[in-house]
Design a protein around this nucleic acid. Sequence first.
DNA 1: CGCATGACTTAGTATTGCGCGC
DNA 2: GCGCGCAATACTAAGTCATGCG
Length: 774
Amino acid sequence: MDSDDDIPIASLSAKLPPKPPAAPQPPKAPAVVKQQEEKKEKKKSTLPSKDNMTKEEWKAYKKKLKAIRDFAKHGKVEKKKKRSADDDFEEKKPPRPKKVKIETKKGPKVAKTLDKTQRIANAMKAFLWWEAPKVPEGAQWLTMEHGGVYFPDKYVPHGVKINYNGKPVDLTPDQEECATFFAAVDPNGMHLGNPKTAKIFIDNFFTDFKEVLGKGHVIKDFAKCDFTPITRHLDEQKMVKKAITDGERKANKAAKDQVNFRHGYAIVDGHLEKVGNYNMEPPGTFRGRGEHPKMGKVKQRVTPEQVYVNFSVEAPPPICDVPGHAWGEVRHDPFVQWLGNWKENINFQDKYMQLAAMSSFKGKSDRSKYNKAARLCGNIEKIRSDIRKNLKSNDKAVRQLATAMWVIDRLALRVGGEKDTDEEADTVGCCSLRVEHMTFNPNNEEGSKEIELEFLGKDSMLFKQTIDFGSDLYNDNNGMGEQVYKNFKDFTKGKNATTDIFETLTPGILNQHLSSIMPGLSAKVFRTYNASITLQNELAKKIENPAWKSLTVSQKVTNYNDANRIVAILCNHQRSVSKAQETQLDVMGGKLQTLQDQKKVLKKILKILGDKDRPNSIIPLKQSEGELKAGVDKALAEAKKMKEEAKTDAQKIEATKADLKAKEKRKDLGNSKFSQAHLWEKIPTESQVASRIKNWSDKITKMSLDLKNREDNKEVSLGTSKINYMDPRISVAFCKENEVPIERIFSKTLRDKFNWAMSVQPTWQFNYEIGLEN
DNA sequence: CGCATGACTTAGTATTGCGCGC
DNA sequence: GCGCGCAATACTAAGTCATGCG
């Protein structure tokens, strides 16, 4: 390709981003790291090619590919004229009407001019993949074209030195970059803020840092290193960034848009699709969760040579825009979804560049995930009776299998594969549960059938629940809770604390058994099924309430969120409470108290007014805030002026600091205002006071309700179940049935992600029949 | 035939930017 | 119209699971 004009994808970008010209394509990888070579050798053998296949296999493979291409040429897709990006976006083609007249009740209205991003979004919306013909079995695409990975800019040294033993140390750019990685880590964050993880983090970082420093470097002891000069510099840069002018902000946005036009979209089978992650992960420190043994290790910069790109043979290859570099390898594999792939240097795992959640690839698999879960509706009784039977089996392996299935079904645990604790954090799921994770009879009660389950699950999230296996919840409808309890007693008897409870069981065995009951069934489907069916049942309960019809939209949304919360708790979806949120809650609590105190004062005032014997002069009046207000206004104006006039970084920093100070003052003023908001400047009348008391009562009710809601919600994350577990069609049907705008439930991204679910009927139900679709 | 691996889903946290109250 | 606080989005780590290889 000599010019952009040959490349449809490039037509999305008027001009290339400010990057030097591209390296010639297609390339042959120059020097590659050892590990990369190894991978390549391996990959080659798995890549379909004449060399690694028998004649028959190669023929079969070619036939398959030909079938796919034939489908592309003669299938229904091609009956209409093939649409390309050019049709929609080439500016030189028929000029797109910039302004659209829309008839409204109020008369003709001129709609806003659509920008390029919006026009592209509209074009993508026009393609309904769920109504388009299906791609041949197994293939993900017929043709695919995209812009490849976008790499972060080369490191620019800032020249700030770290101190060693109190003295500044000269560093090479590489060394300085590495030091800057560490300086950028929040000292109070989840890694350095915890003494236990801080040690792991620092040890790992310093080992890698010493490697970068080289042998015989003066820096030998981490304790003598002082990274604060760089930290300060980074903080200052943040302040400089804050003092940005509107013009600069606009320019930054434009540059970002350019990159997005070039890398943010792919053309799959003639349709525009959004790319999920086109930005290469920048280098830095590895932020493993929990007590990950590798946290703090330096994550290296990835070069284009380490990246494989995947696109169709006939498409123009993506341009690698890092000067002097080229893609490691080019592939044309229509059986996978990924656009790019590379290996990271911490755990040597593969990372992928893929399409976004709203794409057809993701939509299709998402829909079939929910349909599979729906099919479980018709099989769940069969499965549960299978569990019931096997819980009492004489064969221990069978009994363990059934017990594990019970746990996965009823407690919504993950399957839990084996993990190497030298390489990863020690987290568990069902199959990897150990004796130490169970405490029998935690409350020391006679005849108790309680077990406390306490362990770290995915992302080192704490699962801590006391399960009463003797309760109705687990025994009604033949729930078998007591039998499960007996089995656990048996499986743990005489075992060491660190041994597996299910020693005969692996995820492989479990999943094999599940798929023999229902094709495609695996452990994770239970989480999807239980989340969806729980949402549906909880919503049905809410609607049964006789007062339901009279509720406002907001109240209905609150009810939906309550149902959502039950699902989130079932799946143990948590979030950490940040310090800012914690203080926010404290502040709210304080405000509530103030309001209550003020109400008391108001009542006293009312009494005084009604009491002829007491002089009205003892009624407290509002103090003037004029002086304070003037001070705040002056400080704000000065900071603004400084910001406007700032030329150098130092001045910008000063301006930002002044601005922060002024805002602090304003906050004080606000607090002062709040503290006497209940008072008047003159002696009030009785009716004035009475109405203000009512007003304050309302405020107090509202605020305490709000506070309670926040407290209930602060550690539960509703988003994860909404995004991954609850069938969106349940929510869409709920909204339609109850006249709740879908925007109140799903954000824009979620509406896009679940575009395939938006057209269901209000009466839609999550059940077995639905699952048969696909 | 078991286990490593490739590909894809699920997850919490960090950062961004927008709607709402002043 | 302005700025704050939160919701939405961006990011990337950490799972699951089928497969295919030795």
